[in-house]
Amino acid sequence: MTQLHDLRLRLLVQQESEQIAKSQKSDLDLSIVQARCLCWLALLAEAHEDQACEAEGKGDTEQAMGWFADSMRLRDVIQVVTSIEIPIPESTEDSEEL
């Protein structure tokens, strides 16, 4: 089951990176990449928390602790990604006014 989960995660990451590459052909906007990463990380953390609750409900405390620990690691990563300050590119209107 863990292998299947890992494969699904890799596929999702690959699909998302392809979508970013297609939508940002000429100029990569890092703020968009950051926002998408935060969305995916939040979804993954939520899924891990759900898995932890499900395992706890089944009485599998060890598995529940593992899923919960993973969700906490994801929350830590979310904090790191959120704290990265990406400069917002100036719009063409703003640069024309100067």
Score class of each variant (00 low, 15 high):
I84R: 10
S31M: 00
Q34I: 02
L44K: 11
E16V: 04
S91H: 07
S83N: 14
L12I: 09
A42I: 06
A55Y: 03
I84Y: 05
Q51S: 02
S95W: 08
S31N: 05
A35C: 03
D6G: 00
E93Y: 13
G57T: 01
V81E: 12
R36C: 05
E16Y: 03
P87S: 00
E62A: 15
R36L: 08
R10D: 08
W67C: 04
A35G: 02
R36D: 10
V77L: 15
A64Y: 04
Q79G: 11
Q24D: 07
L41E: 07
L11A: 13
I88Y: 08
L41P: 05
A42N: 12
E85W: 03
M1P: 11
S83E: 07
E96L: 11
M72H: 01
S71G: 01
V13I: 13
S23M: 08
E18A: 05
Q63T: 14
A42W: 05
Q63M: 11
Q79R: 15
I78N: 11
M1A: 15
R8Q: 11
W40M: 15
E97A: 06
G57A: 06
S95P: 07
E90R: 07
L41V: 06
Q63D: 08
L12G: 10
A47L: 09
G57E: 06
M65E: 14
R75P: 06
V77P: 10
K22L: 13
L44F: 12
D29T: 01
L7I: 14
S91Q: 13
E54R: 10
A42Y: 03
Q19T: 03
S83R: 09
H5C: 03
L12T: 12
K58P: 01
Q79D: 11
D29V: 01
R75I: 10
E96Y: 09
L41I: 06
E85V: 06
E90Y: 11
K58N: 03
E46Y: 02
E96Q: 09
H5V: 07
K25L: 15
E85P: 00
E16C: 03
D29G: 00
Q19G: 09
L9E: 09
S95C: 14
L98D: 14
Q14M: 05
R73F: 01
W40S: 11
A21D: 09
Q19F: 02
K22Q: 15
L4A: 15
Q79M: 12
Q15C: 10
Q15M: 08
P87W: 00
D29A: 00
D76G: 07
I88Q: 08
V13F: 05
W67A: 02
Q14E: 10
Q14K: 00
D76N: 15
E56V: 04
K58M: 09
A42S: 15
E46D: 10
L9P: 01
E96T: 10
S17N: 04
D60Q: 07
V13C: 12
G59P: 05
S83T: 02
L30H: 01
